[in-house]
């Protein structure tokens, strides 16, 4: 493994990371390789690779997310960037006004990168059109969450040694999930076999264009899978409308030992978090030996370091 500093730097051909859909398979693999090379930095005592020294990173979160925001913050700091967190509480009436206004205001502060999470699909792209710096999508509505898909792919590769030839089952609230979309796009670009598993009410129209196979029976959907990726169910919103109850959902779509037994014996279990234990996943599995959920969190920092580094690092500064 070459050190990050020895890699072909700054050849990443995009100003922003708005979605997996903008990347081809080589760019995806390049980012995963770069992320893998970042892993040791977080494991060493002196967790610093100051390729972004002197750069300003703003984390702009219109939706609260402790986990993703911290991950981006730690990633930026380990690369030596100055990181500022902004959580924007928005009223439902004037969200977009705040978005464009905030973009213009922040842009005037000369940041080098803005990491954005927003509740509306396309909002991060809209913001990127209003600023002069790099923009990273940390989740926009039910559209994309590209760093999550990259960290998931890296996690899978770390455990399986490869991506090609695997079967990945993504289970749960596909309709409202940006994690599902970004993962389907990424895995699809790498010709990984994908399955979506959900009740009809949580499957959006036309999902078969993104997934290899569509299942409403979870037992069949998990048959022979190498990876079982569970999604968070917004059960407060879904109950009574899209699913009758949490207990019925858990019975048919919650990951328990019986259903997991259909997957390959060495199948790994993933979850983007935060988990609803007892809603979409049996706590014993979430904390059990096949769960790689905490590993995903660790890979998250590596992926975000790699993305920030690919977008921002100045090649001249590295040799110093």
């Amino acid at each position: 493994m070459t050190s990050p500093a020895g890699q072909n730097r700054n050849s990443f051909p995009h100003r922003n990371l708005l979605g997996i859909s903008q990347l081809n398979q080589y760019e995806i693999l390049d980012l995963i390789d770069r992320a893998e090379a970042m892993i040791p930095i977080s494991r060493q005592e002196r967790k610093i690779l100051p390729t972004l020294a002197g750069k300003t990173q703003i984390n702009l979160f219109f939706e609260p997310s402790t986990r993703t925001q911290s991950s981006f913050e730690i990633a930026g700091k380990r690369l030596g960037a100055q990181v500022t967190n902004m959580s924007v509480r928005t009223s439902s009436v004037a969200k977009g006004e705040t978005l464009v206004d905030t973009a213009t205001t922040l842009n005037a502060m000369q940041p080098d990168v803005i990491v954005v999470r927003h509740g509306a699909a396309g909002a991060v792209e809209l913001l990127s059109q209003k600023v002069g710096c790099a923009v990273v999508n940390a989740g926009d509505g039910a559209h994309e969450h590209p760093t999550q898909a990259l960290l998931d792919a890296l996690t899978i590769r770390q455990h399986k040694g490869r991506l090609s030839g695997l079967t990945v089952a993504i289970c749960g609230d596909i309709a409202n999930s940006r994690v599902a979309r970004s993962n389907l796009l990424l895995l699809g670009a790498l010709q990984v076999r994908t399955r979506v598993v959900a009740p009809r009410t949580l499957l959006p129209r036309g999902i078969e264009t993104l997934a290899t196979e569509v299942f409403t029976d979870m037992h069949k959907g998990l048959e022979g899978a190498d990876v079982v990726m569970m999604l968070r169910l917004q059960h407060e919103r879904a109950a009574g409308r899209l699913i009758p109850s949490v207990r019925e959902y858990y019975r048919f779509y919650g990951l328990d030992e019986e259903k997991l037994a259909r997957a390959k014996p060495d199948a790994i279990v993933m979850h983007p978090g935060p988990m609803n234990r007892g809603v979409e996943i049996d706590p014993a599995i979430a904390d059990g030996p096949r769960s790689v959920i905490t590993h995903q969190v660790e890979m998250g920092v590596a992926v975000r370091m790699a993305v920030l580094d690919a977008l921002l690092a100045d090649p001249a500064a590295v040799s110093a």
Partner: peptide, 13 residues
């Protein structure tokens, strides 16, 4: 419009 385009865009149809 509900359909593949909406689904890919993450927009409700």
């Amino acid at each position: 419009n509900e359909g593949t385009l909406a689904t890919i865009s993450g927009l409700k149809g």
